[in-house]
Simulated scan of single mutants.
Amino acid sequence: MRKQSLIVFYLWFVNVLVYYGLSLNISDFGMNIYLTQMIFGLVEMPARTITLFTLNRSRKISQLAFLAVGGLACLLTIFIPSDLPVIRTILAMIGKFGITASLSIIYIYSAEVFPTVIRQNGIGVGSMCARTGGVLAPMMYLLRSISPQAPMVLCGLCPLLGSGLTLLLPETANKALPDTIEDVEGSSLREEDGSHL
């Protein structure tokens, strides 16, 4: 349960860090900031809508895939020269799409990972970790003094790490919600020793 909790808290943190990091970084993509802001706003509608269709199939794969899409797109922007602002903006838009979808999923996923007895506390601590990410997002761009690509490297690597960590979480789609910590610990032990087969 401790391992799952730390992973969920990290996912909350990284989702909000990158979400606000991208939103506050629109001037770095080289296009008109008002147009870029409008595009970033519009991309949230399909991102939130697509999760309605993916969530019922798999919480785990949805979270993992959207984090990977967001992280890879952000990471790819560092390889695009500054004289191609449209391509950089499209990649950043894909990154924002992935992170927005991932952020929508973490609310539901974390509520299902935590058992009933600590669900409220778990989501509360997760939300606190998210606010920490939101506070650090504007400061992330102080890294530009080290390297102009550093903020986007961070926006790319953090979600990719989160995507990998999501593999360690249980699948919760179409499963009964755990009521006690023992329910979670017991199901984890059964999965590890293969006795559920």
Rank of each mutant, 00 (worst) to 15 (best):
I105S: 04
P151A: 07
R190V: 14
I108D: 10
M139H: 14
S145C: 00
F79Y: 14
T54V: 13
I26E: 04
K96C: 05
L165W: 06
L67T: 11
C158V: 14
S23F: 05
L169I: 07
R119W: 04
L24C: 04
S187P: 00
A47L: 11
L22M: 14
T77Q: 04
A111M: 13
T180Q: 10
V125L: 06
Y20G: 02
L165V: 07
M31C: 00
S23A: 15
Q37F: 06
S187C: 03
S102T: 14
F66S: 02
I181A: 11
G164A: 12
D183P: 09
L169P: 04
A73S: 12
M140N: 12
L103C: 06
F79T: 14
S163G: 11
L67R: 09
G41I: 01
Y34K: 08
G30W: 08
L72P: 01
L42I: 10
A65E: 05
R144M: 06
V135Q: 06
I33Y: 01
S58E: 07
L189V: 13
D193T: 02
L103T: 15
R59K: 11
I108A: 15
L103Y: 12
I61L: 12
T77N: 02
Q4M: 11
K175G: 02
N25F: 02
G186L: 14
F29T: 12
F114A: 12
K175Y: 03
N56M: 04
G41Y: 00
P170Q: 09
D28S: 09
L76M: 13
M128L: 14
I26N: 04
Q4A: 11
N174C: 08
S102C: 10
L64G: 07
T132D: 01
I108V: 15
S82V: 14
